[in-house]
Write a protein that binds this DNA or RNA. Structure first.
Lengths: 194, 194
DNA sequence: GGGAATACTGAACGAACGTTCATTCAGCAG
DNA sequence: CTGCTGAATGAACGTTCGTTCAGTATTCCC
């Protein structure tokens, strides 16, 4: 009999496959049979590890949030300048979210909590917990008086989370996108008057 | 018997209902029976006007793109300053996309073309056609040398199209969001050094 | 009034859905 | 060898899916 560490091995394969499928096709477009087929097992086998389809998505989503958070923390590293910290955070976020092969990160931007009937509250809590990081990052920034920081944060997250829609795995890499994005939000893109 | 103008009345009711449902729950989460029930008819009645579920979505999507485009054009009006034109366009786009009651606009941001197996090429073409407006608007802007205008446009559209996710019908209105968004992209949000 | 056209019903089709369950089988403990 | 456990099967469950179709009621044209 496998110990607990090995016992967790089996669900890991299941989650990897489910993450890739959910990220590519969306929650409702992926059936339990699709997941089973991609694993080379029968549908019932999935239920030896997860009580329901929603719980599979919830597990993938939780893992996805954790991976994005880890990527953001790693990218920030020891940077101290608030704008530099924000740019690094964006790069980490983009790297996680654009990793279509892994899928975990993409699931968080692709699947809206409301799509998963039984687990929506849980997913919202996970997402809110992660977004608190960006709330803190934005709070550090020296912004013009009168700037709505919530709106600023949503603009930033919107731009970041929309990238999987148009970024076909090609084009500018995460670092380049993050650089221009933060530079624009910081000092603007308008040409200097002369 | 209704003439052609009146004959188009019946599908209109169908589309209104379908738009609201698709916008709220997504393509795969809405069944033909859901649409029929909301109309007070039987499922077969829908097939008197549309050959398939994908065609219903395609019709809603096409209408949605058209409505957003019309809202943008109306908002721009006669403005001539490129930044002013952009801000008006964003306000129009937001008004259309945040009109959750109508749904037509939200469908375009909520449903990804890849979700609709038979009509994905058609939907991509519609979306690309609309986005050409923003390509033109961005092309007019006097941007710093070295600015990637495609990236700039995608940042903008990402921020705009992500709003339905967090904007619960409450909070800042479209005009206010558009104002700060364009102001930030233009001159940046950083506090002036002193 | 006869006839064609239109909008819809009521019922059904086969397929796919999420889920359940008795059973089988491999591997380890005693 | 025996007994147990957990993973997986294979088949089936009831439901819902998109779609089809013969029939009906209404309406307009001639």
């Amino acid at each position: 009999m496998p110990d607990t560490a090995l016992a967790a091995e089996a669900p890991r394969r299941f989650l990897d496959v489910a993450a890739r499928l959910f990220a590519r096709d969306g929650y409702h477009a992926v059936s339990m049979r699709d997941i089973a087929r991609a694993l080379g097992v029968t549908p019932g086998a999935v239920y030896a590890h997860f009580p329901s389809k929603a719980s599979v998505l919830a597990a993938v989503y939780a893992d996805g949030v954790e991976r994005i958070a880890a990527a953001v923390d790693a990218a920030i590293g020891g940077a101290e300048d608030p704008w530099e910290r924000l740019e690094h955070a964006c790069r980490g976020h983009l790297e996680a979210v654009l990793d279509a092969e892994a899928g975990y990160g993409s699931v968080v931007t692709r699947v809206l909590p409301g799509e998963v009937p039984g687990s929506d509250d849980q997913l919202v809590a996970l997402r809110d917990g992660y977004e608190a990081r960006f709330r803190a990052l934005v709070a550090e920034l020296p912004l013009r008086a009168g700037t709505d920081r919530t709106l600023f944060r949503m603009t930033l997250l919107g731009a970041l989370n929309w990238t999987p829609v148009w970024h076909g795995g090609r084009g500018a890499d995460a670092g380049e996108v993050a650089r221009q994005l933060v530079a624009t939000l910081r000092t603007g893109a308008e040409e200097e008057r002369r």
